[in-house]
Design a protein around this nucleic acid. Structure first.
Length: 224
DNA sequence: ACTTGATCATAG
DNA sequence: CTATGATCAAGT
């Protein structure tokens, strides 16, 4: 699959997946669908990247580098509501931690996003679940201001050596949560005096409450 | 129903 | 180990 030449083409391809089941798309790409979804959490995301002609590696760049577009799947429950938060990127805890919102990875990741909704109703067998609507999003002025506030607060605490005081309840739309293989994983962080210590790796996530508003903004809100 | 903390797979 | 892709599952 060639990479899409424009946003229009990318969006058209994504919309072409709408209504199709996971098994159908996997079969077309000649990749087997893992038998146990619990052990294949990111599989559908990877499948969609391939189906749309995006980058299939794990390089720290947008999924569609020429277009500057990031692809995110959005799991939707039986009532049309977003079920899960959306992972954005890992959180820099090291001595080279970012200090400017304008050059932050969060801002770059979220500058242009293609959301593809998918069925995530436990009542539907995994293979029979279908892709849904797709829409492109960039933060408007108010959304960007809120993201910047959250990011600045969280990174400020990290810069002050207080990463361990941060829990997932902080942040209006952006939150910090563990992001690792398990709770025992550690990465290097720095305390207020600049001394290194080991801390669980963290990641930035968009709250489901927030992506739900994006769905509504796109005219796709099906909940009550 | 919803959130928070924990976890799973794969590539380089 | 870090990055990518996320969802699971316990607690409230």
């Amino acid at each position: 699959m060639q990479s899409p030449a424009s946003e229009t083409e990318l969006l058209a391809r994504a919309r072409g997946l709408g209504g199709r089941t996971f098994v159908e798309v996997a079969r077309d790409l000649e990749v087997p669908l893992p038998p146990d979804p619990r052990r294949a959490k990111g599989f559908i995301g990877q499948l969609v990247e391939r189906a749309l002609g995006g980058a299939c590696d794990s390089a720290p760049r947008p999924d569609f580098p020429e277009l500057g577009v990031e692809l995110k799947t959005l799991p939707i429950d039986g009532r049309g509501r977003v079920r899960e938060s959306t992972f954005v990127c890992s959180t820099p805890l090291g001595d080279a931690a970012e200090t400017e919102w304008a050059s932050s990875r969060v801002r770059h990741k979220l500058s242009r996003v293609l959301f593809l909704t998918l069925e995530a109703d436990p009542a539907v067998p995994h293979g029979r679940r279908r892709f849904g609507a797709a829409f492109l999003w960039s933060p408007d002025a108010a959304q960007e201001a809120t993201l910047r506030e959250d990011w600045t607060e969280l990174m400020g605490l990290i810069g002050a050596g207080a990463v361990e005081t941060i829990d997932a309840s902080r942040g209006q739309v952006l939150q910090l949560r563990p992001k690792g293989a398990n709770a025992a994983q550690r990465t290097v962080a720095y305390d207020a005096d600049g001394a290194p210590f080991l801390a669980p790796p963290r990641g930035f996530y968009l709250r489901a409450r927030f992506t739900r508003t994006l769905l509504a903004q796109a005219g796709l809100y099906a909940g009550s």
